[in-house]
């Protein structure tokens, strides 16, 4: 067996989960596309119910510097959770030491039974995604807020790569929405940035 590849490989396994209509598949697709432009091997696997809107849906995105074999992963290293059912479904599957970004506006700790055991050895970052999105006047763009936060934490790709991917995803018809989406992305990014610097100060 070849052991030449001594370098630690870079692999990000991310599951996005929420209601249909929260832009879960869009943001998953977007991060995969931006990842591809950044030079990663990527895969994007959507899973959704028969409902076009309102049902639960999730997607698995893998970014790796090596060939990706399975597009499915049971224990992801990262979760982006938009609602309570997704929290209950995926937190138990998060890797030990894994990180979950959770939408504080729709997931309330007091509503979760055995919260402590459920989240033991897992990092949970509570983000008021709906509040952020509403604050910038883009209540539907909480997915981009989440992406901004995630990319600030992981440093997957620079903003110009995101813009390139976003342009392609929006296409000609929806291109006028580019600025608004970018605003939401920056909101998430900057909020986490501010949070991180407050941590270093204190």
């Amino acid at each position: 067996m070849s052991r030449i590849m001594k370098k630690k490989s870079m692999k990000y396994e991310i599951i996005f989960s929420g209601f249909g209509g929260q832009g879960v598949l869009f943001v998953g697709n977007l991060i995969a596309l931006a990842g591809m432009y950044q030079g990663f091997n990527v895969s994007f696997l959507p899973v959704y119910g028969p409902e076009m809107r309102g049902g639960t849906c999730h997607c698995t995105v893998l970014l790796s510097d090596k060939e990706i074999a399975s597009p499915l992963v049971y224990e992801p290293g990262y979760l982006v959770i938009f609602n309570l059912p997704s929290f209950l479904k995926f937190i138990p599957r998060l890797k030990r030491g894994g990180l979950a970004l959770v939408n504080k506006d729709l997931v309330k700790v007091e509503e979760i039974e055995h919260y402590e055991t459920l989240c033991a050895n897992k990092k949970i970052l509570w983000l008021p995604l709906n509040t952020w999105a509403e604050a910038i006047g883009m209540p539907l763009a909480l997915n981009l807020c989440a992406l901004g936060a995630l990319n600030k934490l992981l440093g997957l790709f620079p903003e110009e790569i995101l813009i390139k991917a976003l342009r392609e995803m929006l296409g000609k018809e929806k291109l006028p929405l580019l600025e608004a989406n970018l605003k939401a992305y920056r909101k998430g990014f900057e909020e986490v940035e501010a949070y991180e610097s407050s941590l270093t100060k204190s």
């Binding site: 697709n29 995969a32 591809m36 091997n41 990527v42 895969s43 994007f44 696997l45 959507p46 990706i68 597009p71 499915l72």
Partner: peptide, 9 residues
């Protein structure tokens, strides 16, 4: 359906 619906480069 897995290969059919998944995206990759």
């Amino acid at each position: 359906a897995i290969l059919g619906q998944m995206k990759e480069p």
